[in-house]
Simulated assay, not measured.
Amino acid sequence: MGRASRDSLRDWLRAPGSLSKRLAALGTRYEVQVLRQEVTPFRQRERDALGLPRRGCTVVREVILWVDGQPLVWARSSVHQTSLAGPWKALKGLGTRPLGHLLYDDPRVTRSELEPRRLARYGHTRRQMQRQWLAATGELPSPQMLWSRNSVFRRRGAELRVMELFLPALKAYRTRPR
């Protein structure tokens, strides 16, 4: 799968454009496995990133991105539930299609600067990812799976936050399509 290179995980964390397209270029079969999509209370970091009030709910979509049978990325997107009736309503019917189709095929969507972040080793997001990863793959994720990139997408005034958490082994693959 893919060609080894000297690219680092930092290159993946800072790579612009669609992560889905970049991952799909690594192999012959790219898949999105939806782990959950539901309404849930806001997390502090999501509320801050989206500039939302203390109260309210968000719609969360958590997925694993696979290439040729190898899980490489765990991702979480969140949007205020009222945005599902407006600018982000297509999220409801997305299913196993990549979120990137909504984000990069619409010229009205803008993206904030990418923000690499190291997860707390024992934080809530890490524990949630570990449970889901184990259930989906049958294996615990690498203890070194701590680096994520975060960004906010805007469409007609509504914001959608995306966090992508990378398997460390991904650094062995090129960040540019073949």
Score class of each variant (00 low, 15 high):
residue 162 V to T: 03
residue 132 Q to D: 15
residue 150 N to G: 01
residue 95 G to W: 12
residue 120 A to C: 07
residue 77 S to D: 15
residue 19 L to H: 00
residue 159 E to M: 07
residue 86 G to Q: 12
residue 109 V to E: 04
residue 123 G to P: 05
residue 176 R to M: 08
residue 16 P to A: 14
residue 28 T to E: 06
residue 93 G to R: 06
residue 44 Q to W: 11
residue 26 L to R: 01
residue 158 A to R: 12
residue 90 A to P: 02
residue 45 R to N: 15
residue 136 A to R: 03
residue 93 G to W: 13
residue 116 P to I: 05
residue 73 V to S: 02
residue 1 M to D: 08
residue 116 P to E: 05
residue 122 Y to H: 14
residue 86 G to D: 12
residue 160 L to S: 14
residue 118 R to I: 11
residue 33 Q to P: 00
residue 152 V to Y: 00
residue 151 S to F: 13
residue 68 D to I: 05
residue 153 F to M: 13
residue 130 Q to C: 13
residue 70 Q to D: 05
residue 16 P to K: 10
residue 25 A to E: 04
residue 156 R to H: 10
residue 93 G to P: 05
residue 37 Q to F: 15
residue 177 P to A: 02
residue 64 I to F: 08
residue 33 Q to S: 04
residue 140 L to A: 13
residue 168 P to L: 11
residue 111 R to N: 01
residue 20 S to I: 03
residue 131 R to S: 13
residue 56 G to R: 09
residue 23 L to C: 00
residue 157 G to V: 07
residue 2 G to Y: 02
residue 166 F to D: 06
residue 150 N to V: 06
residue 25 A to Y: 00
residue 148 S to F: 03
residue 140 L to I: 03
residue 35 L to W: 10
residue 133 W to K: 05
residue 178 R to C: 01
residue 159 E to T: 08
residue 113 E to S: 05
residue 159 E to Y: 10
residue 82 T to C: 14
residue 36 R to V: 15
residue 118 R to N: 02
residue 16 P to M: 05
residue 22 R to T: 03
residue 136 A to E: 02
residue 173 Y to M: 11
residue 173 Y to D: 00
residue 34 V to N: 11
residue 158 A to E: 11
